[in-house]
Design a protein around this nucleic acid. Sequence first.
DNA 1: AAGTACCGCAACCGCCCCACG
DNA 2: CCGTGGGGCGGTTGCGGTACT
Length: 332
Amino acid sequence: MGRAPCCDKANVKKGPWSPEEDSKLKEFIEKYGTGGNWIALPHKAGLKRCGKSCRLRWLNYLRPNIKHGEFSDDEDRIICSLFASIGSRWSIIAAQLPGRTDNDIKNYWNTKLKKKLLGIAPSQRTPHQQPQQQKQLQQQLLFPSSSSSSHGSYYTSPIPPLPVLESLPPISQNALGTVPTTTFPTLLQGPPYQYQMMKESAHMIMFGSEQSCSSSDGSSTQISYGKEMDYNYIGRSGGAEQMGFESDLCAAGIEETHRWLLGGGGGGAQVERDYGLSRLWEEAPLEYNYEEIKQLLGSLNGYTNNGDRNLSLGDPTGSGVRGSFKSQGRVM
DNA sequence: AAGTACCGCAACCGCCCCACG
DNA sequence: CCGTGGGGCGGTTGCGGTACT
């Protein structure tokens, strides 16, 4: 048996918000706050809306300092790098982009950024001229096994490139048992952890083995899977690999000495302070193999192709990344 | 000008986690 | 310890606008 709905569906308004509803909600929250109870809020505010709907409207549209409109190149980079590192954790990604909402970023990724990465310019409208070719290209990108012609080909991305991906070492089944899973929720939960983790992961996303990087103190670090860093896989689900790195870098205020980050399949992430995002991108190659992008995208979530609409990243197993992420912890 | 196809985005849906009684 | 309700999140849908034939 399913659970009871959060509100009386028959008596709530659905669909687009009117300006009157917006101002009611805004005024109420500015005056009284949310009171920590979204379910009760619409009634108090005199709105015939579901509490969840109010929450969404407030978070995505009405709250102060919301930024709408074009994403900057810097924002593109941050989204790409975080997506490569942690997958579709839009709320975490949004936390790194002031004024942007998870919904915004999700939409932006699904409608534009992903196509940019796949080399399909969003402004290129070719529905009538080249629909088949576009579909073929998308198919080719999304289902590499059906094509051998793409192997080894390069193209220039319209946005700054992702770091080169390399294949991961095999995952041992029993690696899961070595992971202190209690650490992970601790790391993800709460503002300090969330901030610190994301700040660092945004600053330091390294892929592949044998990458060398320099710290601000002038020292050079060789990053190599399984060598310099003690890393542990914490699970694999739906084609996405989650991995953790053990690090002795201890951020202020955080007692844990384990930093668990999630890496998309084919990539990994390391935490290190003093290594700037800009620097990382400067060192990234100017071109990248789209096999590598496919590998990245494919291994993160698997693919579903829902007809001729937007290409959709999803978990074909239905049990995939999200469930395992969720089971590990949440952001707030 | 009308019809069609596509795109972008706001909003909804349903699942999961966690706090609380 | 267990059940329940609320909050949060990612995925999906639907509609209005726009481009194109």
